[in-house]
Computed example of a mutant assay.
Amino acid sequence: MLRLTAALTAVFTAVLCAAPAIAQDALRPQEQLRLDRFEATAGDALLQAFQSGSADDLAALSRALSGTPQVAFDEGLSGDWSCRTMKLGGLPALVVYSPFKCRLTFQGNGYLFEKLSGSQRTTGVITLRDGRAVYAGVGYVAG
């Protein structure tokens, strides 16, 4: 489950971050455009990561991406978790952050996701869009 959460978080962080006041079913045009280009955006980010990531970060990314992808929307996933973020693409091309405390709260049509520890936080929703789990949220600095 940690691997699934890490992989989902990595992809969502690399692909999509929406404004805080946005409704769960609405995205800003620039986020919708990135989502519409998901395969190209994710592919470019992965190519950059594998070209220049450190050996340790590449090993963590490979572990996170191994196995069969799953999208689980089940009340049983609600609760406190240990999560990990991986940033792919851009400069630097791959950053694997330390694990952090997070919380998933099932809301019927998806989850409220909250990063609970560390100086950089995020809060948002994970919903299904065209069969994909998509995170729309906002990042901020704790305090």
Rank of each mutant, 00 (worst) to 15 (best):
M1R: 08
L2H: 15
L4T: 11
T5W: 15
A6P: 00
L8V: 01
T9P: 04
T9K: 07
V11H: 06
V11N: 03
F12Y: 13
T13K: 07
T13Y: 10
T13W: 06
T13H: 13
A14F: 01
L16P: 04
P20M: 02
I22A: 15
I22P: 02
A26E: 15
A26M: 13
L27G: 07
R28M: 08
R28Q: 12
Q30A: 15
Q30R: 14
Q32P: 00
R34V: 02
L35T: 02
R37H: 14
F38N: 02
E39N: 11
E39L: 08
A40C: 04
T41S: 11
G43N: 03
D44T: 13
D44I: 09
D44A: 13
L46D: 03
A49E: 00
Q51V: 02
S52Q: 13
D57N: 10
R63S: 12
R63A: 15
A64T: 07
G67L: 09
T68F: 09
T68A: 13
P69T: 02
Q70G: 08
Q70L: 10
F73G: 03
F73R: 01
D74P: 07
D74C: 09
D74L: 07
D74N: 14
G76S: 14
G76Y: 03
L77A: 08
L77W: 12
L77V: 04
S78E: 06
G79H: 01
G79R: 07
D80H: 13
R84N: 01
R84A: 02
T85H: 11
M86K: 02
G90Y: 10
G90D: 05
V95L: 10
V95Q: 11
V96S: 06
Y97Q: 15
P99V: 12
F100M: 04
C102T: 04
C102K: 00
T105Y: 05
Q107D: 09
G108F: 07
G108M: 03
G108A: 09
N109H: 12
G110L: 05
Y111G: 08
K115D: 03
L116N: 06
L116A: 02
S117F: 02
S119G: 12
Q120E: 14
Q120W: 14
T123P: 01
G124Q: 00
G124D: 01
V125H: 15
L128N: 11
D130C: 00
G131E: 07
G131P: 05
R132V: 12
V134N: 06
Y135N: 05
G137W: 05
V138K: 10
G139D: 09
Y140P: 00
G143P: 03
